[in-house]
Amino acid sequence: MPSRSCPRLALLALAATLALASPPAARACSVCGCGDPQLDASDPAAASGRFRLQLASEYLSMDAGTEGAPGSTDHLKQVSLRADAVWSPAEWLSLLARVPYVRKDLTTTGPGAQGPGSSLSGLGDAELGARITLLSRVDLGRGRSHGLALTGGASLPTGSNDARRGGERLDEHGQLGTGSFGPYAGLHYAFSQGDWYAFASVTGRFHTVNGFGYQYGEALLWTAEAQYRLGQRVAVSLGLDGREAWADLDHGLAVESTGGLVLAASPAAYLSVGGGMWLGVRAQLPFYARLRGEQSVGPVLVGGVQYQAL
């Protein structure tokens, strides 16, 4: 590997991180996410012919007021194991695929609590995406590069959305999948010079109505991140992730305690262990929230490993 290559900084800083790490905004967070949905594709080291495999685990928890039961609160804990593949057949194109395995534990406390809650494990909603470079400029004299790209993709309804207990369908947000398609599109800008790499993105995401008349709210997602390489084996980064989400709709009516604004700081650290393997940890730490109804937010932790094939 080149010893001082700035693109390698991006590999260190973004490898082993999965795109959908999301600071929770209660109900909507499990679908809309927060920040760039193609974070793992931001690696400019993905030159022509490069292929990367990533495996990461994510933990999050969230609370939200129970729909139709004033005074009650839903508590959701979610652990995900996600496999990603990123392939760049050309310098101007990156293709992404993600398959998640999800465990969701949902309980309700308060006057509206009924039964022991739910606990489900299985395949979640897979995602496909692409990034197409629109403009690329390199200043060899200054060792500086700029790039502007169009991003797009969609989540697919591969996760179960009709789990039941005692004949009753479980709460929408306790289901493993959304039961709907979730297309998104956006713009991504990247800058690199020396041991520094930075990028910013903005993305809009939409969800179709599922078979039970439920529609997750549209969302505007954004990320700004700066990364710095420390020596040959370590890199650190700090980012700002955000999401402004509209309320979910149930048969066309706004759902209480869904949607709102979340801002989160996203520190990360990465280590090369040789042989094309990289280890990484990343956190999203919400520091500001303006949410609809009764909602609470908490940190998200992601740890993973990436292998890059030349």
Results as ranks from 00 to 15, higher is better:
Tyr216Asp: 05
Gly141Arg: 13
Gly152His: 10
Ser94Met: 07
Gly260Lys: 12
Leu81Cys: 00
Leu291Trp: 11
Ala149Ile: 07
Ser42Lys: 07
Pro7Asp: 11
Gly186Gln: 10
Gly49Arg: 09
Glu256Gly: 09
Leu9Ile: 15
Asp36Asn: 14
Gly115Ile: 06
Leu135Lys: 08
Ala289His: 15
Glu294Ile: 12
Pro44Ser: 13
Ser160Thr: 07
Tyr197Asn: 03
Thr133Met: 11
Phe199Gly: 08
Pro100His: 03
Trp278Glu: 12
Leu230Thr: 05
Ala56Ile: 02
Gly186Glu: 11
Met1Trp: 08
Gly213Pro: 06
Pro44Asn: 14
Glu58Cys: 01
Gly166Ile: 01
Leu11Tyr: 15
Asn161Gln: 07
Ala97Thr: 13
Leu187Ser: 11
Ala190Val: 13
Asp162Ser: 10
Ser61Gln: 14
Asp162Phe: 04
Val99Gln: 02
Gly49Ser: 07
Leu18Ser: 12
His188Asp: 15
Gly211Cys: 08
Thr73His: 11
Ala56Thr: 08
Leu9Trp: 11
His251Val: 04
Ile132Trp: 08
Leu279Met: 04
Pro111Ser: 12
Asp139Ala: 03
Glu244Pro: 06
Gly152Val: 08
Tyr288Asp: 01
Gly112Phe: 12
Gln295Ser: 04
Arg169Lys: 14
Leu14Pro: 02
Tyr270Thr: 10
Glu168His: 11
Gly213Glu: 06
Trp196Val: 09
Gly177Asn: 02
Val102Phe: 02
Pro7Met: 12
Arg131Ser: 14
Gly33Met: 04
Ala200Phe: 06
Ala83Tyr: 04
Pro183Ile: 01
Gln284Leu: 01
Tyr184Ser: 11
Gly174Pro: 01
Arg137Met: 09
Ile132Leu: 15
Ala90Pro: 05
Ala21Arg: 11
Arg144Asn: 09
Leu128Gln: 01
Gly231Phe: 06
Arg4His: 13
Gln306His: 00
Gly217Gln: 12
Asp43Tyr: 02
Leu135Tyr: 13
Glu218Thr: 05
Thr178Gln: 00
Leu279Trp: 04
His207Ser: 13
Ser3Leu: 11
Asp195Trp: 06
Gly159Leu: 01
Ser118Asn: 13
Tyr189Thr: 11
Ser5Arg: 12
Leu263Ile: 03
Gly275Ser: 05
Glu127Gly: 05
Gly304Val: 02
Asn161Asp: 13
Tyr214Gly: 08
Thr73Cys: 12
Val255His: 09
Cys34Val: 15
Leu53Ile: 13
Ser61Lys: 12
Arg229Ile: 05
His75Ser: 15
Asp74Ile: 00
Arg144Gly: 04
Trp92Asp: 11
Val255Ile: 08
Ser80Asn: 13
Ala126Cys: 03
Ala25Leu: 13
Asp40Ser: 14
Ala19Met: 06
Lys104Met: 08
Leu9Gln: 15
Pro24Leu: 05
Thr158Glu: 03
Ala69Ile: 08
Ala226Asn: 00
Val281Ser: 10
Phe51Trp: 14
Arg229Pro: 11
Glu168Asp: 12
Pro267Ile: 00
Val273Asp: 01
Pro100Lys: 03
Pro7Cys: 09
Phe181Asn: 07
Ser201Ala: 14
Ala113Lys: 02
Asp195Ala: 15
Ala13Pro: 06
Trp87Ala: 10
His173Ser: 10
